[in-house]
């Protein structure tokens, strides 16, 4: 139970980062944190039925559920792509506006249009 509570805490920290902090780089950190919280949750779920590596050789029993692990590999790859793209966009926004503050960027864009 304690693991799940810690994960919920981690998730909330990430969500607060996305919504509550104005710096866009920190928002991207927040996105990575909630993504990782869910990844760990899946891995934890897979280990409910066993704790051995799911490589089927003789003498190995009590393996973890391999499906969540396979899913999370994909989810991690997608997460990396999203983070890279978000950082690239943050860089372009910084070059145009000279700031990482989302409210200031909003104001600048609003003034232009």
């Amino acid at each position: 139970m304690i693991e799940r509570m810690l994960l919920a805490l981690l998730f909330l920290i990430g969500f607060w980062g996305i919504v509550g902090i104005r710096n866009i780089i920190k928002k991207i950190f927040g996105l990575t944190i909630i993504n990782n919280a869910v990844v760990i949750l899946f891995i934890l779920e897979g280990s409910r039925i066993g704790n051995q590596v799911p490589i089927l050789e003789e003498g190995i029993e009590n393996i973890v559920d391999p499906v969540p692990q396979a899913l999370m590999l994909t989810a991690i790859v997608i997460g990396v792509c999203i983070t890279a793209l978000a950082l690239a966009l943050a860089f372009r926004l910084y070059r145009h506006s000279g700031t990482f503050d989302i409210d200031q960027i909003h104001r600048q864009v609003h003034d232009v249009t």
Binding site: I24, L31, I34, V67, A86, L89, L93, V109
Partner: peptide, 30 residues
């Protein structure tokens, strides 16, 4: 510049929503 901001905002809200989607998958799988 506006397009970068629009793209960034869309990315953040949509990627966050997709993490919640993943949580939904977790619930269903469980």
């Amino acid at each position: 510049q506006g397009a970068f901001l629009a793209s960034f905002s869309y990315l953040m809200v949509s990627a966050t929503a997709m993490v919640f989607f993943l949580l939904g998958i977790y619930g269903i799988y469980r």
